[in-house]
């Protein structure tokens, strides 16, 4: 008998008393009543608690903020589908203002047909991505690999992640957020910079994932 048949047989046998499958009571909260202003405030509070840096800016000021945050980065990577307008204020030397798809010396573009190598990514200082949805109550940002967020490796290897969250993408609580996304996509849920509490349970920010997380909330 194959291991599969064997194990399924053992499990069926273990359930020969035919235990009932009880109905699942879902009396927990599945919606929250917060307005946009309250959602932003809550998300900022949670992110700051995780030691992420947060700025809340009008949509028109996102490019300036991105440029400011990238000031110290010698190089940065963006996914091919990133809103080119967000990079309009970044000084890329020779080809300032060109579309995100083109790439410059300072800016690397990670595209589906031409992904950057791991070693190359490791040499890049920062990454700029959009996000799919955020959860105010837990301070969580979810990336789903859409073209404006890119594949998982680009938001992982560079040490500085600049992540743009649209105010309309902020959900109050986790059930609301998860109901807005497709679970089949490769997902990363991010709540602050990487951290560990493995030594005497003292939280230390910054281990293997990006040590610096900057969130720009655009409204």
């Amino acid at each position: 008998m194959s291991a599969r048949e064997d194990i399924l047989g053992r499990i069926r046998s273990a359930l020969s008393d035919a235990p009932a499958a009880p109905p699942v009571p879902r009396e927990y909260r599945t919606t929250s009543e917060l307005d946009e202003e309250a959602l932003i405030l809550l998300l900022v509070d949670r992110l700051v608690d995780y030691k992420a840096q947060v700025s809340v800016v009008p949509a028109a000021e996102v490019p300036a903020r991105v440029a400011e945050l990238l000031a110290e980065a010698r190089s940065y990577v963006v996914p091919a589908g990133l809103d080119a307008g967000w990079l309009a204020a970044v000084d890329d030397g020779t080809s300032t203002g060109r579309a995100a798809g083109a790439g410059t010396e300072r800016r690397r573009v990670d595209a589906a047909g031409a992904p950057l190598g791991v070693a190359e990514l490791d040499g890049i200082d920062a990454v700029v991505t959009a996000s799919a949805v955020a959860v105010a109550e837990t301070g969580t940002i979810i990336l789903d690999g859409s073209p404006n967020q890119g594949r998982r490796a680009i938001s992982l290897v560079p040490d500085h992640h600049i992540c743009i969250v649209a105010a309309t993408d902020i959900a109050g609580i986790l059930p609301e957020a998860l109901r807005r996304i497709d679970g089949i996509r490769p997902l990363t849920m991010i709540s602050g910079p990487s951290a560990t509490s493995d030594i005497e349970l003292e939280r230390v920010e910054g281990v293997h994932g990006p040590r610096r997380l900057d969130v720009i909330i655009s409204r």
Partner: peptide, 24 residues
């Protein structure tokens, strides 16, 4: 997360469904 590390959410959770072309 609340029961284990006593955090509102753990820093990272990854979800994957089989193989995704060009990612992972």
């Amino acid at each position: 997360p609340r029961s284990s590390t006593g955090e509102r959410m753990n820093p990272y959770t990854s979800l994957w469904t089989g193989v995704t072309e060009g990612d992972g």
